[in-house]
């Protein structure tokens, strides 16, 4: 089955991973800008990162028949540095016309602080000003519920935000329904260790339905499994779910969501 990984950090992965993903049916992916594992020191460092995301990665992916898209922002962790964040936000429009840019992301919260919220709101303003879609990172572990509610407050508190054009990622059992009920798209992230397993993701699909629900691997430089989406496909098959339902979650839904971005020109494989 062909699938689309809507959230994966390929800058941290090897070319061998591209090959493996292609062999497992991955034909498209979107890569949000995120934390590199260390705080970057200057706006130029982000400029180079955005060049990597908009120029180098799509070429590397294309060698394996994978269509690569991306999202730009300064992530929630580095957003604690408000001054640097503002410089990055000012620089982002240089890249918004690049052919693989889908919008602003992954913006969000990390420790749910005032600075993170301030920069979240300023990213929202940028997205509105440039009519961009938004991809959101919700915090992990004990911070997730509080942070998700804060993010939903900021989004729904601004009538210019269209929930249908916003994807809220890393939802779990206690946050998925609220995100979906408010009209947003929701993404589940399959991490091998502490976070959502393919089994739990399949449970959430069964409980919430497949409407506006996506699944991703968020493969990055930490312990993660870039081939996690095929794990979910297998788990759903083993439970006896229909191919149509599985395909909706791993292929049709991401494509429907991304199609709202003017730069999304995905070609279905023949």
């Amino acid at each position: 089955m062909y699938y689309f990984d809507p959230h994966i950090h390929m800058v941290s992965r090897t070319t061998d991973d591209y090959e493996t993903l292609a062999k497992m049916g991955c034909v498209g992916m979107s890569e949000p800008a995120f934390w590199a594992g260390f705080d970057r020191g200057s706006v130029d460092s982000f400029r180079d990162y955005f060049r990597q995301l908009t120029d180098f990665e799509p070429k590397r992916a294309a060698q394996y028949g994978i269509q690569h898209y991306t999202w730009l922002c300064i992530n929630a962790k580095e957003a604690e540095n408000v001054e640097l964040s503002r410089e990055v936000i000012k620089m982002i429009p240089e890249f918004l016309d690049k052919p693989n840019v889908l919008g602003i992301g992954e913006i969000g919260l990390n420790k749910n602080t005032k600075n993170e919220s301030t920069i979240f709101l300023e990213h929202m303003e940028l997205a509105i000003q440039y009519n961009q879609q938004i991809l959101i990172h919700t915090p992990h572990l004990e911070d997730k519920y509080q942070g998700t509610r804060m993010i939903l407050d900021m989004l729904t508190g601004d009538s210019r935000i269209d929930p249908a054009r916003v994807l809220v990622d890393h939802v779990e059992e206690h946050t998925a329904r609220e995100v979906l009920d408010r009209g947003f798209w929701a993404g589940m992230t399959l991490y091998p260790v502490t976070k959502c397993t393919p089994q739990r993701a399949a449970d959430i699909i069964e409980m919430c339905g497949a409407e506006r629900l996506l699944v991703n691997s968020a493969g990055d430089w930490g312990p993660s499994k870039p081939t996690a989406v095929p794990d979910l496909i297998l788990e759903m098959r083993r439970r006896g779910h229909s191919e149509a339902l599985i395909r909706k979650v791993v292929y049709d839904n991401p494509i429907e969501f991304f199609s709202q971005s003017q730069n999304f020109s995905f070609q279905h494989p023949e």
Binding site: K114, L141, E142, K144, Y145, M150
Partner: peptide
């Protein structure tokens, strides 16, 4: 409620809907 959602909430920090006033945002 499902047990998974209850466990998640048990291990979650409390959400306070006045956070924006507290942060003056």
């Amino acid at each position: 409620q499902t047990k998974a959602a209850q466990i998640q909430m048990l291990f979650s920090r409390v959400y306070d809907d006045t956070w924006r006033e507290q942060f003056e945002l």
